[in-house]
């Protein structure tokens, strides 16, 4: 059997965890040694205690934020790919619509969110829309590039065989676009989370649909800093899990053929 330390996954997994443990221990020791009060900078222990004290509320908030994130991400993927498909149909369409896509991209979501929240009565819908606006651009631009980046030789081959538009799309354009699309998904999933949290901050909705941003705001008002950190960590954790899920998906779809997903093999 291969020794544990020589397995491919060993160092990428163990090294970051080791660093994390060291950081946590150092952090705890610092807080203990200098007796830093928890309302200035809470120790890991205090954060864990705060989480255990109030985990039903925090997990419920996490669930709300996750719902917005996933809805926005799904919407961004569907609408973004559709837009990309429309873009590649003709240059004229792309040239006339692209500026608006860029407009969406460059306008800060914090500035648009209040407007959307006023316009759309249903708050979760408004939040989802805000997050979608943030998350959609990488999908549009990457998928458009992907659908255009095709081996010219293969394209000639398809043309020579008199292959129709639809069949060329399915057999050639979509598989060629997949690596680009996946890169777009990776960026977009992170942006969906950021968009959801920012929109929640702006909306400030509490009650049953309160998200993690609301819990952070509330904890801030109440100077319950350890609880604030606990909520923050939940957001970070969500981001990491999303990122890992995207890597996994990419590995699954492209692992066997595309450079972006090939591991340690040249």
């Amino acid at each position: 059997m291969t020794p544990l330390a020589q397995r491919a996954w060993f160092w990428p997994v163990v090294a970051p965890i080791g660093v994390g443990v060291l950081l946590l221990v150092g952090w705890q020791a610092m807080c203990d040694y200098f007796e830093i009060p928890p309302y200035l900078f809470p120790s890991p222990k205090a954060i864990v205690t705060a989480f255990l004290d109030d985990y039903p509320t925090l997990l419920h908030a996490l669930w709300s934020t996750l719902k917005i994130t996933f809805q926005a991400f799904a919407l961004a993927v569907v609408l973004g790919s559709l837009t990309a498909f429309i873009f590649v149909q003709s240059r004229v369409i792309e040239l006339s619509l692209l500026p608006y896509a860029v407009l969406l991209q460059v306008t800060p979501i914090v500035a648009v969110a209040p407007l959307l929240i006023i316009l759309v009565k249903n708050t979760p819908v408004a939040l989802t829309l805000c997050a979608t606006v943030v998350a959609i651009f990488p999908i549009i631009s990457n998928t458009t590039i992907g659908l255009r980046t095709i081996d010219p030789g293969l394209l000639s081959y398809f043309r020579m065989n008199k292959v129709g538009r639809a069949e060329t799309l399915i057999r050639l354009r979509i598989p060629s676009a997949l690596p680009f699309f996946m890169a777009g998904m990776r960026i977009s999933s992170g942006l969906a989370l950021i968009g959801a949290v920012v929109a929640e901050f702006v909306a400030g909705t509490g009650g049953r649909s309160a998200g993690l941003a609301y819990e952070i705001l509330q904890s801030g008002f109440q100077l319950d800093i350890p609880r604030m950190f606990a909520a923050l960590f939940l957001i970070t954790l969500t981001g990491v899990v999303l990122f890992a899920a995207m890597i996994g998906l990419q590995q699954m779809l492209l692992g066997h053929w595309h450079e972006s997903a090939l591991k340690g093999e040249t």
Binding site: D151, G153, L154, S156, Y157, N161, K162, V163, E167, R171, L172, P175, L178, L254, W257, H258
Partner: peptide, 23 residues
């Protein structure tokens, strides 16, 4: 037959060869 192999990198050899028959 082109100067380059012009194969679909995402498809196995057998599926690459089958492509014109699929057409």
């Amino acid at each position: 037959v082109f100067q380059e192999p012009t194969l679909m990198p995402w498809a196995r050899v057998a599926r690459n060869v089958r492509l014109p028959l699929d057409f």
